[in-house]
Simulated scan of single mutants.
Amino acid sequence: MSKTQDIKETVQLIKDLVSIPSPSGNTNKVIQFVKDKLVQLGVQTIKNRKGGLIATIPGEDNTKHRVLTAHVDTLGAMVKEIKSNGRLKLDLIGGFAYHSMEGEYCEVETSNGTVITGTILMHQTSVHVYKDAGSAERNQANMEVRIDAKVKDEKQVRALGIEVGDFVSFDLRVQVTEKGFIKSRHLDDKASVAMILQLIKRIKQENISLPYTTHFLISNNEEIGYGGNSNITQETVEYLAVDMGAIGDGQQTDEYTVSICAKDSSGPYHYGLRKHLVQLCTAHQINYKIDIYPYYGSDASAAIKAGHDIVHGLIGPGIDASHAYERTHEDALIETEKLLYHYVQSQLVDYES
């Protein structure tokens, strides 16, 4: 299969994954989608009690293990309050700003499975009515969901089955351009989940013998801080989170390379593993950037905070406008896939040196 076909498959997987609503706390459908893909590849999986999925490929050495993780949960919201005017007040799931979802279409999923569409708006949206439509703060008090139903009060909303605690998902607006850009919500981190699936597929198709037993954790609580802090075997030595590289002022990361994280809000990642990843990039002509993400945490840092004695790292494709309407390029996916492919076949870091 050509590289062009490979990347088209990855992009299609991304489109399929982002099309399944999965805010943290409501991820069963997307986990089942991933499980079905892995079953088709003949890969053993188990589901942990938190709802995450673990796939394992035995290696030549079963006394030392690796873990690679990517998360399938996304940002979202819950119904906080049903207002007297029939609108809904929201409570956010995950770390993002209210202004990033203003004007966004959304879906409210009731506890009985009914889906009702709506739009997230400022209460003071109409410039013909509200003098402060432009200047009012975008916050929980001022933003609300206008549902697409004939409702005028709280009682009529509840009659539809909507209740406090119902999950709210955002319209993803996925687009793939002729120039190779992928635009969508939730590329963080469904782009990485797609690449993990492609990596496993390649391992199976090429009958690659991995040097160490390798676990692939598809976590489902990363956006709320604890997706990857459990189900790590005692034999695990290295733990690599595959997430996104954050782009902005002062950052080296771009949309065309794989980003290798040196440090985030949790502190430095393992220096030896970082150098090993750079060496792999150099040896295999992989375009990369090293960067620091100042307001960021990963499943790898969650595992460290949980007390696991592991070597931890973080890589991922550069993604613009993180936690908003995100964008990356096929080039970043290609470079990240190359690094993953060579990493899982490499030797462990000598953490004692």
Rank of each mutant, 00 (worst) to 15 (best):
N112S: 14
G248Y: 02
I182N: 14
Q32Y: 02
K275P: 08
K263W: 05
I162K: 07
K64S: 00
I93D: 02
T4Y: 15
S135M: 09
E102R: 08
S259V: 02
S184K: 10
I292Q: 00
Q234L: 10
L187M: 08
R185W: 08
G161W: 01
E330Y: 15
Y351Q: 14
P21M: 02
A133K: 14
H312E: 06
I292L: 08
Y269S: 01
H312W: 07
A55F: 00
G103L: 01
N207D: 14
P294W: 00
V344D: 04
K47Q: 11
R49F: 06
L333F: 12
F167Y: 09
K89H: 10
P23N: 05
L53E: 08
Q32E: 11
D188A: 03
F167N: 13
H329P: 05
L280R: 02
I116W: 12
T119L: 13
V145C: 08
E330S: 13
C106Q: 10
H308F: 07
G86F: 09
T233C: 14
S22A: 12
A262M: 13
E326Y: 11
Y269H: 02
L273Q: 01
K50P: 00
I46L: 12
A141F: 13
H312G: 12
A300Q: 02
K263G: 07
V168Q: 07
Y256Q: 13
G307L: 02
G161Y: 01
I260W: 06
S266Q: 11
H128S: 12
I310H: 09
H65C: 14
Q205V: 14
I208L: 03
V176D: 06
C106D: 12
P294H: 08
I260K: 08
V115K: 10
N220E: 05
L75Y: 04
A97N: 15
K8C: 10
E144I: 03
S22E: 03
M122N: 02
N220G: 00
Q285H: 15
D132K: 10
A324C: 09
V168C: 06
K275T: 12
T177H: 08
K47Y: 04
P23A: 00
Q345T: 00
S209E: 03
S259W: 01
L68C: 11
P268H: 15
G272A: 13
E235R: 12
L273C: 09
A262V: 00
R173Y: 12
H71L: 00
G134D: 14
I304T: 12
L88W: 10
